[in-house]
């Protein structure tokens, strides 16, 4: 390679070289790329067992070059528990949407975290049910219009959006819980660092690792990619503040 042709970007080998099915501007693609890069950089690819969930990320098994098993809607944390109990020597990763994790799968995520299962879960919060056409999710912001909240989410009838990483951070079995965004380069760098921690706590058998990624769904937000990205900064981050909600490694170091 000559001086002029310096390689500045290469696909991590955990990432399969195929086009994804995500809509333009969808940040599922960014979240899964960070996961793939980390699996590669941390040398985990060959040792990883992936549990996929039901939502727009359902085809994640086609994009990450790892062994995987499909979980029913919301049940990925239970499936991941089964995988880890069967193969405690493997790195177990799961990836869920906000409808999947914070609505139908609420019991499974809470108890998986509370038991302190040594698994890592990436939680992509895009404030809607993306795959089924943009219905209201437990994370939909107050006033946000969706196909099942046409007048906007009404707090008095539908409650307030659920902040998952704070809740998960409260549970005894959680080793790491953080919320990140991938709306600019700085946040993407931070997100990758946080995701790495959520992976490392599993490797060190410290307990449950959780990382919430605020993400765009331009299609169901009825916005172009740029506007959707701005909404992350202007509307999502003020209600879903970025930061670490629990980190047992930090407590140890204090």
């Amino acid at each position: 390679m000559s001086e002029q042709e310096k390689l500045v970007f290469d696909r991590a080998d955990a990432l399969v070289d195929v086009p994804t099915h995500y809509c333009p501007g969808c940040q599922h693609g960014v979240a899964q790329r960070l996961a793939g890069e980390l699996l590669t950089e941390m040398g985990l690819t060959e040792n990883t067992l992936l549990v996929t969930s039901i939502g727009c990320s359902v085809f994640l098994y086609n994009y990450l070059n790892v062994d995987s098993v499909e979980a029913p809607h919301g049940r990925a944390p239970a499936v991941a528990t089964g995988v880890k109990r069967a193969r405690s020597d493997k790195f177990v990763l799961s990836y869920q949407g906000d409808g999947d994790l914070a609505s139908i799968g609420m019991a499974e995520i809470m108890h998986c975290a509370n038991r302190g299962e040594n698994v890592s879960i990436i939680f992509v919060n895009n404030t809607v049910y993306g795959m089924t056409g943009g219905q209201m999710a437990p994370t939909t912001l107050v006033g946000q219009k969706t196909t099942t909240s046409p007048a906007g989410r009404n707090a008095s009838k539908e409650g307030l959006p659920i902040r998952m990483s704070e809740i998960i951070g409260q549970l005894g079995g959680t080793a790491y819980s953080a919320r990140v965004a991938v709306n600019n380069v700085k946040n993407i760098r931070k997100a990758k660092k946080a995701m790495k921690k959520a992976f490392e706590v599993q490797q060190k058998e410290l307990g449950f690792g959780f990382i919430e990624v605020l993400a765009t769904c331009p299609t169901n937000w009825r916005m172009d990619a740029l506007k959707a990205n701005e909404r992350i900064e202007n509307e999502l981050i003020p209600y879903f503040p970025l930061g670490v909600h629990k980190d047992v490694t930090a407590e140890v170091e204090d």
């Binding site: 499936v79 089964g82 069967a86 499974e108």
Partner: peptide, 11 residues
């Protein structure tokens, strides 16, 4: 949850 744990272990 128990039945879904089976999916993981059986896999």
């Amino acid at each position: 949850a128990a039945a879904n744990m089976l999916i993981g272990a059986a896999a």
